[in-house]
Design a protein around this nucleic acid. Structure first.
Length: 358
DNA sequence: AACCCTGGCAACCGCGTATCA
DNA sequence: ATGATACGCGGTTGCCAGGGT
């Protein structure tokens, strides 16, 4: 019953491979193939290695046509786009890059590419956390730090590069639950709707938002699809939500969760609006396309969106707030997402802050 | 020169899935 | 159908080289 044991863990060698071991493994596989059984391979070759170790060594190092290092700008772009779309599925990403191994790409991402992208982001969250002297706890924080980082990176990169991503392609936006449609519809019909922002602090909150919208319009910004242009950061609980410039009137939108939180805490102290995308938008740059089939991309994008909503499967948390016209356009399918995919020009990861304080 | 720190990378580990008896 | 093992993958670890003090 079952298969033969894998290998005798006590009698296998660990650590770096010697040239002799490499030669033996390479010679054997080139002559005989793997035989479909990695576990039995070391015995046949006569080396004291685990079959898994042999497989790894062959795939990551000895296999013909392997490339090491020297990643090109194009490869960077492909890796970034695929990471945005599907996350850390390195084997799939590696399949798109001939000669690259999943391990190589994973290492490259973790040691260089991620830093290249995230390193430019402001570390203001940590500073404000200290000065405020408020210790956040896991229950009050809607996202873990790692999840938040991934989310922010997802959204930052999506907005920078991928016109077909969730935020840039309304065909990927979730269908709203009827109850949500109802809420939006109510906001359309009632200018003094129940959004907490509309109750007292509306004008104060909207002033900078309107200013950004005006700036976009005055400069002739042309956003063909909803686009993340920055983040509204709640400096008290270290959370962040995207600000999305709207198609048509270029007026930024934001999600309801942050509205509720920040309104409760007091907008002046709690929020900083960081606009990271403004010059790209004003320059009307186009961005790079996706490398994934539409269906798979949809799934990946929904994962990201779910995470943004605290992993909740409850669609009631997926209501998007905006001003009246935004809400209308956001819930219809009239977006023009026919952006021509082109390579991003140099400086694709440019990041700056307008430092809008509310 | 010696020590420490950091980044890069190869290799290992553990887990989920596929496969086989 | 079930249990054991192999396989494949992503996350993590540990070593080493290079730079800084």
């Amino acid at each position: 019953m079952g298969r033969a044991p894998c290998c005798d863990k006590a009698n296998v060698k660990k650590g770096p491979w010697s040239p002799e071991e490499d030669d033996a493994l390479k010679e054997y596989i080139e002559k005989n193939g793997t035989g479909g059984n990695w576990i039995a391979l070391p015995q046949k070759i006569g080396i004291k290695r685990c079959g898994k170790s042999c497989r790894l060594r062959w795939l990551n190092y000895l296999r013909p046509n392997i490339k090491h290092g020297g990643f090109t700008e194009e490869e960077d772009n492909i890796i970034c786009n695929l990471y945005i779309s599907i996350g850390s599925r390195w084997s799939i990403i590696a399949a798109q890059l001939p000669g690259r191994t999943d391990n190589d790409i994973k290492n490259y991402w973790n040691t260089r590419l991620k830093k290249k992208l995230l390193g430019r982001r402001k570390q203001s969250n940590f500073n404000t956390k200290e000065t405020n002297g408020i210790e956040e706890n896991s229950s009050s924080n809607s996202l873990s730090n790692s999840a938040l980082e991934r989310l922010q990176l997802h959204m930052q990169l999506q907005s920078l590069q991928n016109p077909f991503s969730f935020y840039s392609n309304t065909s990927l936006w979730p269908k709203l639950h009827p109850s949500q449609e109802k809420v939006i519809q109510q906001s359309l019909n009632d200018s003094s709707n129940s959004n907490p922002l509309m109750q007292g602090q509306k004008d104060e909150f909207y002033k900078p938002i309107t200013a950004i919208g005006d700036l976009l319009q005055q400069n002739g910004a042309n956003i063909n699809a909803p686009k993340v242009i920055g983040h509204l950061e709640n400096t008290l609980n270290n959370s962040s939500v995207p600000f999305i410039a709207n198609s048509g009137n270029n007026t930024p939108m934001y999600s309801s969760s942050i509205v509720e939180q920040t309104t409760n805490m007091g907008l002046q102290q709690a929020c900083t609006l960081q606009i990271t995308e403004l010059d790209d938008i004003l320059n009307n740059r186009t961005t790079m396309g996706s490398y994934l089939p539409q269906e798979e991309q949809n799934m990946a994008e929904f994962d990201c969106f779910r995470e943004m909503n605290n992993g909740s499967k409850d669609n009631s948390s997926l209501i998007w707030w905006s001003n009246v016209s935004d809400a209308k356009s956001a819930t219809t399918s009239s977006w023009d997402s026919s952006t021509t995919p082109t390579l991003m020009p140099e400086g694709m990861f440019h990041d700056y802050e307008l430092g809008y304080s509310l």
